[in-house]
Design a binder for these strands. Structure first.
Lengths: 201, 201
DNA sequence: TGTATCGAACTCAAATTTGAGTATAATAAG
DNA sequence: CTTATTATACTCAAATTTGAGTTCGATACA
């Protein structure tokens, strides 16, 4: 979240709500999980750390409503941004797909419940691609290279995701997904030997 | 995390550390971000909610060291597991790749810093694939269908990730990744009109 | 003219994750 | 035989995220 705030303030001064708007406007909320709460928290932290500062305070009509503060990135903030950017790019990439994580456990679930969920994920996937294609068509020519690459990247991953989900549906239907560990008599022997090494299943 | 704990307890009673071992043994820690802290926290929560219960308390040699508690999933826990599993599979799939999130901002960074980071990600990617292939070769025939599908899925995604990273390197070298928004005179006009709609960039 | 909903602009407690630390036994290395 | 590392089995404060709620003005609708 810090990266998003600093990154957007690199383009110009903004107040928190404007950052939120921009995130939505560029379709990033479709792609990433970025909640309001985290945004305001990040802004507070960044101000406390002296990485951003108030550029202007605009009063808001209405009585006891908070004024909005327009923030500017400081010099310290600019170098912190660089660091943060590289740190972000250095992180380990964990595949966080919810279905992927559920996979080892689906065999304890019901086929009838699992199949529709997989179908729903495909629908999700399609919808996401469609929305992002729209964004590209509408705004693609104005967006900077990196933003375009990001959207294209997500579309690419979504296509693969779709194929993968289809295969999963097939193996759910064939029952393969619900198979437990396979114990033929010979394997059982080898298995018990390995068991100590890597936990049982 | 709850899903992992309940899912593993579906297979048999375990103490927390054993759950941690199993997670490592099956290579899940390579694929997902699962910290000890969260594990113990989840176990506490689940016990408080009555979804798991102590099956046995084993004393540990040594004086003031905590005994280990072996947990068993309760009936309530079994149905909670089902719910949780389906809930998990219903979640929106956000592509959480760190480089993907950094992409809109790399243009404010340095080529010389970015390129090695992308290369490092490729190396990561290769290492992950290799490790997972090893897991498949060593344990594949014993693992239940879902676990195999999970590992295969991650390998699949990693292959695509690699291709994508290579393309990114190319567009970093060509400078495309560092381009700002493109303002030809005609586009600038159209742009200012759109600006109100979706924030500026 | 009343009401219903939408958007702006946040706030906040509670839930959860993170990262680092602790203590002891067992094993390995010199 | 002494020291160093590794493995076991956690604990805990601090950081962060979550999700739901708030307040007021404006616009839409009946």
């Amino acid at each position: 979240m810090r990266l998003f705030v600093l990154g957007l303030l690199m383009e110009g001064d903004k107040h928190p709500y404007e950052i939120r708007q921009t995130i939505k406007a560029r379709g990033w909320n479709e792609a990433f999980k970025l909640r309001d709460g985290s945004l305001y928290y990040a802004v507070d932290q960044l101000r406390d750390d002296g990485l951003i500062e108030a550029a202007e305070v605009v009063p808001v009509p209405g009585d006891n409503r908070p004024d909005k503060t327009i923030f500017r990135i400081t010099d310290a903030g600019q170098s912190a941004f660089q660091k943060l950017l590289y740190e972000q790019m250095r992180q380990n990439a964990y595949p966080q797909h919810p279905v992927l994580m559920a996979l080892p456990f689906v065999r304890h679930g019901q086929v009838d419940a699992v199949l529709p969920l997989l179908e729903a994920q495909i629908a999700n996937c399609d919808a996401r691609q469609e929305r992002l294609n729209e964004v590209l068509e509408m705004k693609g020519e104005y967006l900077p290279g990196g933003s375009v690459k990001m959207i294209e990247g997500i579309i690419r991953f979504s296509q693969i995701e779709r194929q993968w989900l289809e295969q999963l549906i097939a193996s759910a239907q064939s029952g393969e997904l619900f198979e437990g560990p396979k114990w033929t008599p010979e394997l059982l022997d080898a298995y018990t030997k390995k068991m100590a090494e890597w936990g049982h299943d």
